[in-house]
Write a protein that binds this DNA or RNA. Structure first.
Length: 275
DNA sequence: GCGTGATGTTGAA
DNA sequence: TCAACCTCACGCC
């Protein structure tokens, strides 16, 4: 489930469960053993997220940089930690009441980094709608002079950090925007509206720990249809709804590969040369 | 129980 | 452009 909202939620949850207290760290899988030993018994004092990157700060040891990739999972539990099942890269136990545990499985990245290395990661990421220090103008500077399709730009973490395949499809639908429109054909007003919407949607994603993008007036009750809830979480307009009827115009949702990812859009509601 | 695809990124060809 | 990473939920038996 890892788009940016998942990672920010993980940062919150880690801080809530372990922040300010001594944590035991282990790597049952064995691939992070040395670093886990350096963390073991230290205080987790900070958790930070930028886009899809998670950073856990341990006093005197630096930061653990985690990227879940496509498959990674971070699961929490209370009470005694069960026997590790499968490949647990990092297990944290203890925490604020001594009874928490968290298992990290299958991440693309799990490494101990210095503050300088952490900063280098921030420096190569674009503004993150979920961060208060984000400057959408930085993204606009790139978008406004790019011939690349807006749907591709939204997925480029150097342009905007944290947007994934669900949010890009949904936010473009919500603005009736052709996903193939070149970045430089957007107006500043249109970009500001996209950014504001992403900010709102993603904050809601952090709160609910899932992605919902359907406006209240288009919810199942209002539209006379069954709610759609599947593994990505919530109710959406177009994501993974290829060949189904658009909730708004009834037209057929289309899908196509774009930059090695599946793009979804409604040609009726998002007219342009992609239709 | 098995096959499939997926919300992501990297690095090689 | 594509394989690799290697987890999980789902559909279909």
């Amino acid at each position: 489930m890892p788009e940016g909202h998942t990672i920010h939620r993980l940062a919150q949850d880690c801080l809530h469960r372990f922040g300010g207290s001594t944590v035991r760290a282990a790597s049952p899988q064995g691939r992070f053993t040395e670093s886990a030993a350096l963390l073991d018994g230290r205080v987790m004092s900070a958790a930070d997220a930028h886009g899809k990157h998670l950073f856990l700060g341990f006093d005197g040891a630096g930061w653990v940089h985690v990227h879940l990739g496509l498959y990674g999972t971070f699961r929490f539990g209370t009470g005694p930690a069960p026997e590790p099942v499968g490949a647990v890269r990092l297990r944290l136990t203890g925490g604020t009441d001594g009874l928490h545990h968290a298992d990290l499985r299958g991440p693309t990245a799990c490494e101990l980094v210095t503050p300088g290395e952490k900063q280098a990661i921030h420096d190569r990421l674009g503004p993150d709608p979920l961060r208060s220090d984000a400057d959408p103008g930085r993204a606009w500077a790139r978008i406004s002079r790019s011939r690349t399709a807006i749907a591709t730009l939204l997925m480029d973490q150097k342009v905007v950090a944290g947007v994934g395949n669900v949010y890009r499809a949904e936010v473009l639908f919500r603005h009736g925007m052709d996903p193939y429109r070149p970045g430089r054909d957007l107006t500043r007003t249109a970009w500001d509206a996209l950014w504001a919407d992403l900010t709102e949607l993603m904050h809601e994603g952090v709160r609910n720990n899932r992605i919902d993008t359907v406006r209240p007036e288009h919810t199942p009750g209002a539209m006379g249809r069954e709610p759609r809830v599947d593994d990505h979480g919530g109710e959406v307009y177009v994501y993974r709804r290829a060949r189904q009827a658009c909730h708004l115009c009834g037209g057929e949702i289309r899908t196509a590969a774009l930059a090695a990812r599946n793009l979804f859009w409604c040609p009726g509601c998002q007219p342009g040369h992609g239709g």
